[in-house]
């Protein structure tokens, strides 16, 4: 099986093919497998749901383009919830590639809910050196971001009236694909006591769980599954929900492949011993 066709077709090619089938078929036929909402995601939903109208929420797009399939559904679901609740949303980015994605997301979802730029939401733009940027927002936001993403002075926008620092912010949502949500915990939560909501890639989930257990974060939405759970809470079928069937079938395939691999290994070991 190692080489089915000279040196052109290897076992890994068969695995790639099976994986493609396992992902494509559920996307086309949509079997609608059940999805359960976990407590971590429910906690985020309940927290945002419980905020008074007009509360200010910062959403930081701390991700790169390579993780968009996980990050965009997550950001969309959280933004929809914020706008539905009539919260004031301030966008920013601590990674360069998240900048234009964040700006586009804010404008698109804001338009869905007829929100006005500058009054209901704003996009401050990108800042490098996350530690310094996070700490600076705790002192004076208008000093760190004198202008918005488009270069207009932010102090002139209605949304910025009375918004000075973290004391006026209900929560920071970090939509991040790396360890930047941890920086938010280190510098914004530990020093200023801000409520942090990490919306992260699945890879980062186990890194963030200790902060959940120590109650340093409000909840945890991880990966496409976290986004799908959030979509379910919003009663809205989005990209994440549609992708979850494919996720489940792909996981079943991987479990089967691991089992087959182990059976082959044990049989080979047995053969060598005999």
């Amino acid at each position: 099986m190692a080489e089915a066709n000279g040196k052109r077709f290897h076992t890994r090619h068969l695995i790639f093919l099976l994986m493609a089938i396992a992902v494509v078929l559920p996307l086309i036929f949509k079997p609608g497998l059940p999805l359960r909402v976990t407590k971590e995601v429910q906690d985020i939903y309940d927290y945002i749901e419980g905020l008074p109208e007009e509360s200010v929420v910062i959403i930081s797009f701390d991700h790169e383009a390579s993780s968009l399939p996980e990050m965009v559904p997550m950001a969309e679901a959280l933004l929809r919830h914020c706008f539905r609740k009539n919260l004031k949303v301030c966008g920013m980015a601590l990674l360069a590639e998240g900048t234009s994605v964040g700006d586009a997301n804010l404008r698109r979802i804001g338009a869905e809910y007829n929100k006005e730029y500058g009054e209901d939401y704003i996009f401050w733009g990108f800042r490098p050196q996350h530690e310094v940027a996070i700490l600076a927002l705790g002192e004076d936001i208008t000093r760190e971001f004198k202008t918005d993403y488009t270069g207009r002075p932010i102090s002139g926008f209605p949304i910025m009236q009375g918004l000075r620092n973290y004391q006026n912010v209900a929560a920071v949502i970090s939509v991040g694909d790396g360890d930047i949500p941890i920086y938010w915990v280190n510098y914004a939560q530990a020093r200023y006591g801000v409520n942090i909501i990490p919306a992260i890639t699945a890879v980062m989930a186990t890194t963030m769980y200790p902060f959940l257990q120590s109650e340093q974060i409000v909840g945890l939405a991880a990966g496409l599954k976290g986004a799908a759970e959030y979509e379910k809470l919003l009663n809205r079928t989005g990209l994440a929900t549609r992708g979850m069937d494919a996720q489940s079938t792909a996981h079943v395939l991987i479990i089967v492949l691991i089992a087959i691999g182990n059976i082959i290994m044990f049989r080979q070991r047995g053969g060598k011993r005999s």
Binding site: M19, A20, V23, V24, L27, I28, S66, S67, L68, P69, E70, T201, A202, V203, A205, T206, A222, G223, L224, K225, L239, R242, G243, A246, Q247, A250, H251, I254
Partner: peptide, 19 residues
């Protein structure tokens, strides 16, 4: 397990885009 989930999510995202 979470890493596998993340990588599959990326594949799903691309296939959703292509199809």
């Amino acid at each position: 397990g979470y890493t596998v989930m993340a990588r599959i999510s990326l594949l799903i995202g691309r296939i959703q885009f292509l199809l």
